[in-house]
């Protein structure tokens, strides 16, 4: 096992194995290098660093916690298997996000073919202790998320990333490998479609 000398408070040093170093002490680039060198356990750091972000996006795209977890697991396993093809290890988080985003879009297409609507699935995800408020909230969720569900997977993804997750165009464009202009056009079309759909439902 590789040993790394870590300066202690005094003149002496202590030694820790790489996998014992905290995520704060190892950059993404270092973690990727260690995994590719055979330290599979180091991959756990990437799972911990990006798991919540990936899961949140999958949840918003699918509206179903089991499906979201399944997609995240598939994305992380695929990421491990293809890690050598990650050209910018310092941006491995964005690379993993892109893998997940593609799986989510495929899932949305497939769910649509099988007529599974997020608008019908989402309401039970965020119930509270007030039944009346829950019922009203469920109706709103069903209406707005049902409309979002009617967009193309690409439009839905763009709208979720921009307006629901609140990311900047630059950040989304970098992750999705699109130009900012193309991305804006996609968001504009999503808005136009949503407006029509929500007017229809009103």
């Amino acid at each position: 096992m590789e040993r790394v000398a870590v300066p202690n408070a005094g003149a002496a040093t202590i030694s820790l194995s790489c996998s014992m170093l905290s995520s704060v002490e190892r950059t993404d680039e270092q973690v990727v290098r260690d995994v590719l060198a055979g330290d599979r356990d180091a991959y756990r750091l990437l799972v911990r660093r990006y798991g919540d972000t990936l899961h949140g996006h999958a949840l918003r795209m699918t509206g179903n916690s089991d499906e979201a977890a399944d997609l995240v697991q598939r994305a992380l396993v695929k990421g491990f298997k293809k890690l050598r093809s990650c050209r910018e290890p310092e941006r491995v988080g964005a690379w993993l996000f892109r893998i997940l985003a593609n799986l989510c879009k495929d899932h949305v297409r497939s769910a649509r073919r099988n007529d599974i609507s997020l608008g019908r699935v989402a309401p039970h995800l965020a119930g509270g202790s007030d039944p009346e408020a829950d019922a009203a909230g469920a109706e709103i969720r069903s209406r707005v998320w049902g409309a979002l569900d009617a967009l193309t997977p690409e439009q839905k993804e763009a709208f979720v990333l921009k307006h629901v997750e609140g990311r900047s165009y630059e950040e989304i464009a970098a992750v999705m490998d699109l130009s900012v202009a193309s991305l804006k056009m996609r968001v504009h079309r999503a808005r136009e479609a949503l407006r029509g759909l929500l007017e229809e439902y009103a």
Binding site: G51, D52, L54, H55, G56, L59, R60, G63, S65, A68, A69, V72, A122, L125, A126, G137, I140, R141, V144, W145, L148, H163, V164, G166
Partner: peptide, 11 residues
């Protein structure tokens, strides 16, 4: 959309 968005940490 933001207030009704499904949320949750990775299990």
């Amino acid at each position: 959309f933001r207030t009704t968005a499904p949320k949750g940490a990775m299990p």
